[in-house]
Design a protein around this nucleic acid. Structure first.
Length: 622
DNA sequence: ACCTACTGAGTTTTT
DNA sequence: CTCAGTAGGT
């Protein structure tokens, strides 16, 4: 691949980028802090910067770029965007992971180097202890006077080994020692939380500086997405890895979307980072997502969060009629669900949006709304998909199944078999199999054999689908046959996250169960494939899960004091969550307030009322 | 057995 | 804000 001179480099695949983005993309001498409000095109910015660094050879093989995100689908989106922008070869040196997946990968590779007694057993399980579990641990060991919440934080922040710790209250040293020597050992098996994995990585890196040197040599460039949500432990690890090294760090995020402080995020990650890493700041002000009327309201909310917020430059054109924002009020929950369901069905039938373009958001407990709204939508022939739900029999959420490597390989082949046209999938399969089977993408003979192989497999899948109707058994057989074709051992050896059986089977079971679920009641494989991908289904999720996503229309359930019982107006996490929900919408957003759930949320109601958002009677069921 | 007044817990993520 | 649980009264 010919190398482009840095001065000749131009953005690819987009009409334009704002000047601040261009400056930041071509910044080679400083660490960077890029403040990017909602819809500013963070993913695009990072993808263009990756393309700049890779295609100019500023980041030359064998050097790689490490990109850290907070959600696995965000990591996946970024990876895909980089592949689109600079092709499979250069993007092969772009490692896009979540912080937790990155730390877990290091423990899976170097866990044995962690000094005793902290060495984790290789078949550990990932634990997600709740409030009760932390308290139970304390009670079991006679510390019932201490708080589980504080133990959780202490575990997330402590430096290992505990023996060297010097806490103000020596009792905590005993508690932590006991906790770590037993790990989170409940039923005779080792369980690790992600905060523990983070501490173990930190420990092994401090113990063995060669690992730090190796990582620094591999990654001269590091991207940090959604930096406002960085936890103390993650930041500590970041410093351990890259402070005072030659690595160039690019932190991107938006304080107004900081909604993870409750889970241990630093309240001031940007200022701390800017000071420690002497970072230069750039501010992106475009909003490519929402049209001017929505941006106007977003700005009013932004100003209430941060008085100095810059007014974004709205780039999207409005293309719907009627109110683009309103508070819909209802008296009781039955008319609420009925009314919203018939409105959604009518909007879909009129062709102004597809089901998957319309998101239903909640503050929490999507499961309970699924039970109410799901049947109401079903009576109009519209399906609701709770993306946080585990498919029956799996212990992985639907949204995570979709981003798994084993899913992407398998489903690309299923789509090639089931659908008339799937050109992207053909490309994706060839690209992936080249990698998995270790074939040279530039060797014509290799590529020709590969194409023949895949062509034959697709023909075989087509004839299987013609003779076998979709069913639980035929789905399992299909997955089995495709994985045999790909080669499970080969697949697993190219995906570091599939090193442990537990992790691989969790993903594979998720895939099989979601496929079976997608086949229920269907007679044709094309529909099964579309069901699997969520085509034709209205997605339902929490605000937290919606972060980073965008939808034509957003409907938020639960603008009431019952749902927001912790609400505080000034600079609160709740207000920022509300901002995140609002800024997901490209064309329109409605907030549902129902007497059956609680009272009017006066502060928010008045805030958006002041910029012209009306409280109206919600659409009625028909 | 039943009433009233009070206390405290619940929720959002990460493979 | 709502719900479950509890203490203390009739």
């Amino acid at each position: 691949m010919p190398i482009i001179k840095p001065e000749d480099w131009e953005p690819k695949g987009v009409a334009s980028l704002e000047p601040a983005a261009l400056n930041a993309i071509q910044e080679n001498d400083h660490n960077l802090c890029v403040v990017a409000s909602a819809g500013a095109g963070k993913t695009e910015f990072l993808a263009q910067r990756a393309d700049y660094l890779l295609s100019t050879g500023i980041c030359r093989a064998p050097h790689r770029i490490l990109a850290i995100s907070f959600k696995s689908d965000a990591a996946k989106n970024l990876k895909d965007r980089v592949r689109q922008r600079c092709g499979p070869e250069l993007s092969g040196r772009f490692d896009s992971l979540t912080f937790d997946a990155f730390s877990k990968g290091l423990i899976d590779r170097f866990g044995a180097l962690v000094p005793a007694p902290y060495t984790p057993s290789p078949d550990y399980e990932i634990a997600f202890p709740g409030f009760r579990d932390w308290n139970d641990f304390l009670a079991r060991h006679g510390y019932q006077h201490l708080s589980g919440k504080i133990l959780e934080q202490a575990v997330a922040r402590c430096r290992l080994p505990i023996e060297t710790l010097n806490p103000k209250n020596p009792e905590w040293k005993d508690v932590l020692t006991r906790f770590w020597t037993e790990y989170y050992r409940d039923k005779n098996l080792t369980q690790l939380t992600f905060s523990m994995i983070n501490r173990l990585v930190n420990y092994v890196l401090s113990h063995d500086p060669r690992l730090v040197a190796g990582l620094q040599a591999t990654y001269p460039f590091v991207f940090l997405d959604e930096f406002q949500d960085t936890t103390f432990g993650q930041y500590d690890l970041l410093k351990r890895l890259f402070l005072n090294s030659n690595a160039r760090l690019t932190a991107v995020g938006d304080n107004k979307q900081r909604i993870m402080v409750w889970a241990g995020a630093m309240p001031d990650s940007f200022t701390t980072f800017a000071a420690d890493f002497d970072a230069k700041q750039e501010t992106l002000i475009s909003n490519w997502r929402s049209h001017p009327e929505l941006v106007e309201i977003q700005h009013a909310i932004a100003v209430s969060l941060e008085a100095a917020s810059a007014k974004p430059d709205a780039k999207r054109v409005r293309n719907v009629d009627g109110d683009v924002c309103a508070i819909w009020s209802y008296d009781d929950r039955a008319s609420e669900c009925g009314g919203v369901a018939s409105w959604i069905a009518a909007a879909i039938n009129s062709g102004e949006m597809t089901p998957e373009d319309c998101a239903v958001l909640v503050r929490f407990k999507p499961d309970s709304l699924e039970g109410e709204l799901g049947p109401a939508l079903a009576s109009h022939g519209v399906r609701l998909r709770n993306i946080a739900r585990n498919p029956d029999g799996a212990n992985i959420a639907i949204q995570d199944v979709l981003t798994e490597d084993v899913t992407q390989c398998t489903m690309a082949l299923i789509r090639l078999g089931a659908l008339q046209k799937a050109p992207d999938d053909w490309h994706a399969v060839i690209e992936r199999l080249s990698l998995i089977w270790g074939l040279d993408p530039d060797n014509e003979a290799d590529q020709e054999t590969l194409q023949d192989h895949v062509g034959a497999k697709v023909m075989e899948l087509r004839s299987f689908m013609e003779t076998n109707a979709p069913s639980s058994d035929s789905c399992a057989a299909l997955v089995q046959s495709i994985l045999e074709f790909i080669g499970e051992a080969e697949l697993r050896s190219t995906v570091p996250a599939y090193r442990r059986d537990k992790d691989y089977f969790r993903a594979r079971t998720g895939l099989t169960c979601l496929l079976k679920e997608s086949a229920e009641g269907e007679t044709d494989w094309a529909t099964v494939a579309r069901n699997f991908d969520g085509v034709g289904q209205v997605p339902l999720m929490s605000i937290h899960k919606s972060k980073g996503l965008e939808f034509h229309t957003v409907i938020f359930f639960g603008l009431d004091s019952g749902t927001w019982w912790t609400f505080e107006p000034q600079d609160s996490e709740e207000m920022r969550a509300f901002f995140v929900a609002f800024t997901r919408a490209m064309q329109r957003v409605y907030f549902i307030s129902c007497r059956g759930r609680g009272n009017r949320l006066a502060y928010v109601d008045d805030l958006i009322g002041d910029v012209g958002v009306d409280r109206v009677r919600g659409p009625s069921p028909d």
